[in-house]
Simulated scan of single mutants.
Amino acid sequence: MKVNTTRRATLVGLVAVVATVSGCGLPRSGPNKREIFAGSVMNKGDAFIVTVNSRVTRATSVMPAYGFSDAFRKAGAVGSDTINAGDVLTLTVFENVKDDPLLGNTGQRVSVLDQVQVDGQGYIFVPYAGKIKAAGQTPDGLRQAITRKLDSQTPDPQVTVQRLAGDGQTVSVSGAVGGQGVFPIERPTRTLSAMIAKAGGVAIEPAVAVVRVTRGSQTGKVWLQDLNENPALDIALRGGDRIVVERDQRAFTALGATGAQSLVPFETQTLSAIEAIATVGGLSTSLADPTGVFVFRNEPAEIANQVLGRKDLRGDQRMVYVLDLTQPTGMFEARDFLIRDGDTLYVTEAPFTQWSKTINAITGTANAASSLASSSSSG
């Protein structure tokens, strides 16, 4: 009699547990399709839910346009022989005398003035010639100026001027390059691509490399691949330019029934929805609902108006784009729809998944109850 009472109590407990499991929410990766659609503006929510088609794809295919302004592109190449403040020069003077040269010791007809730096005002000092304006001149022009100054003091002086690598016309190169540093602008390195090569080239994948140039208060940037393919982007450099090579900072978030749930950096300049899904391991074959692939995005008003066929929206709008991969053109739409920086890619779970979880929960509870009953009867 006591055993029957225990079994009856166990059965009552089992029924109560089953009822509790059926009534409570089971663990899941996020909202289902019905809950997402409930947040639509049509249902007094705050998001516009739009099914992706070719028209929507065209309206939303907006990617960051990098490039340089006219101020960068129209600046001509720096003359490789132009002397600037900060440059270092080597001066060599040949005197046509044997016994008493002006600059050298007795019997010394050749005098070398090494490491002569052009000062901040653009001048150099040459013994017996005084201060001479060097900045803005070519080595040949400076040679003539020095010759004129010395000609009255030593017969027929012969002067040579060599411009070395000083800090007058230099740029800094940093970031993801083979060798960071400060480099002089010389004949082979007067353009952006040549200077990057001088710094050892890029140290990251070219597909995600962005080159940023700051000149004074202006900044421009360009994709490395575009720089390599378009000669018009290979701008001439100026002294003081700061060149930084960096990885593309764009990323999207993958959530729901995908192979991975994480913040995912872009690996190419453009990224389609189907490529984004593939990047995170595809849809989970045991969980995902291919009719419920969503892209959440804050869309600028101009694009939102175009997508919705309106003109009255102001400011960023919450948009939810829906992709149904089971439709005849579903895979093509996902292939053409572009993911943008900050997007959230979310894949809902199939309805069967929740049903299966419920059955598993009930079955597991029943097995536990059965074990409990067996233990009770044996005791």
Rank of each mutant, 00 (worst) to 15 (best):
I204A: 00
M195S: 08
T189F: 08
S172N: 12
V202I: 14
A209G: 06
P188K: 15
P188E: 04
I185A: 03
R190W: 09
V173H: 05
R190Q: 13
A209H: 02
A207H: 10
F183M: 08
S174R: 09
G175M: 02
V171M: 06
P188W: 08
P188I: 11
G175C: 07
T191W: 15
I204H: 03
S172G: 11
V208W: 02
V177E: 00
M195Y: 09
L192V: 07
V208L: 03
F183Y: 13
V182I: 15
A207C: 12
V173M: 04
T170K: 15
E205N: 15
P188G: 08
S172A: 07
R187D: 15
I204P: 08
G181M: 07
A207S: 14
V171S: 02
G178C: 03
P206T: 08
S193L: 14
A199E: 04
I185G: 01
I196W: 01
S172E: 06
I185Y: 04
I196G: 00
G201Y: 05
T189G: 08
F183P: 00
S193W: 09
V173Y: 03
K198N: 12
I204E: 04
V182D: 05
A207Q: 15
S172M: 05
T170P: 06
G175H: 05
A207D: 01
R190L: 11
V177Y: 01
M195N: 09
A209L: 08
G201E: 00
A176N: 12
S193Y: 09
Q180F: 01
A194Y: 06
V173W: 01
A207M: 09
P184F: 04
A176C: 10
A209N: 08
G201I: 02
G181Q: 04
I204L: 05
E186H: 13
F183H: 08
R187N: 14
I204Q: 04
S174T: 11
G200A: 02
P184T: 13
V171F: 08
R187Y: 13
R187F: 14
E186T: 15
V173N: 00
S174W: 05
A176H: 07
